[in-house]
């Protein structure tokens, strides 16, 4: 039976697909090519690279809130949302870490350089990857869940460091959105970026929600299996 939640989820999914289609068409057909210093045509990677980084922050914040609440009072739902947040943070973080180097190759001449933002971002994604590994390959007991929640909270502490690393330590990574940074000279570039933020928000909502639902279903199934085992139904069969 379809519920109101299913309806909202389907609407988000359809809206996400449509927004991405519009974004891609807009970026390739309307947005002008950037200056050579920004990578020229390769700068078009920017319109999903930056929104993907924002989606990673969003996922991490969901993971952080759910983990903090779980540490305060443990429930299956909180654990499921914490797990989903960490998984999506890894997904979007990987997107950022793969699209960035491809753009950097054109703008900087190298795929990777150990400058502050890249290094801190890599470390953050590795923290969330550790959380996902822990949840995937260890038992699903209370101790593992609490440890993963604490690790997720720790991962979130690194986010402000990633965000302010450019301002604090400089490096090659540019500040292109605020404070007069180069890269968004044309109004269509700004429109494309905001469209990218909107599309990634929808995608993040769809992915986080679906992963949380999966995790929650898994928890309910575990509980049901334990009840069946306790009732001795399995032995009777």
């Amino acid at each position: 039976m379809k519920t109101a939640k299913d309806g909202v989820f389907s609407t988000l999914l359809v809206l996400s697909v449509v927004t991405f289609a519009v974004l891609i068409a807009f970026v390739f057909l309307r947005v002008p090519e950037a200056q050579p210093q920004a990578g020229g045509l390769a700068q078009k990677i920017f319109y999903f690279h930056v929104p993907a980084a924002y989606a990673m922050y969003l996922s991490a914040v969901v993971g952080f809130v759910a983990s903090a609440l779980y540490l305060y009072r443990a429930t299956d739902a909180r654990d499921a949302w914490a797990q989903a947040g960490a998984e999506c943070a890894v997904c979007f973080g990987t997107l950022v870490l793969t699209s960035g180097p491809l753009w950097a190759k054109k703008a900087w001449g190298v795929y990777w350089t150990w400058e502050p933002r890249l290094t801190t971002l890599l470390l953050t994604v590795l923290v969330y990857a550790a959380v996902v590994m822990l949840r995937t390959f260890s038992a699903s007991g209370e101790a593992e869940r609490r440890f993963a929640a604490a690790l997720t909270v720790l991962g979130t502490v690194t986010l402000p460091i990633v965000h302010y690393s450019v301002k604090k330590w400089g490096g090659n990574h540019p500040t292109v959105i605020r404070e007069g940074g180069g890269g968004l000279g044309h109004p269509d570039m700004k429109t494309a970026l905001w469209l990218g933020f909107f599309a990634m928000t929808l995608l993040a909502a769809v992915l986080i929600w679906s992963r949380a639902r999966l995790a929650l279903t898994s928890h309910r199934l575990n509980a049901l299996e334990e009840r069946v085992a306790a009732d001795g139904l399995g032995e009777a069969a």
């Binding site: 210093q37 491809l102 703008a107 450019v166 400089g170």
Partner: peptide, 23 residues
């Protein structure tokens, strides 16, 4: 740091030879 982070800067010794389309 703020001045350095406002623009796109090449890394010393980096070579840009790959096509933008391919990337």
């Amino acid at each position: 740091p703020t001045a350095r982070s406002m623009e796109f800067q090449p890394v010393q010794g980096g070579q840009e030879t790959t096509s933008a389309e391919a990337l």
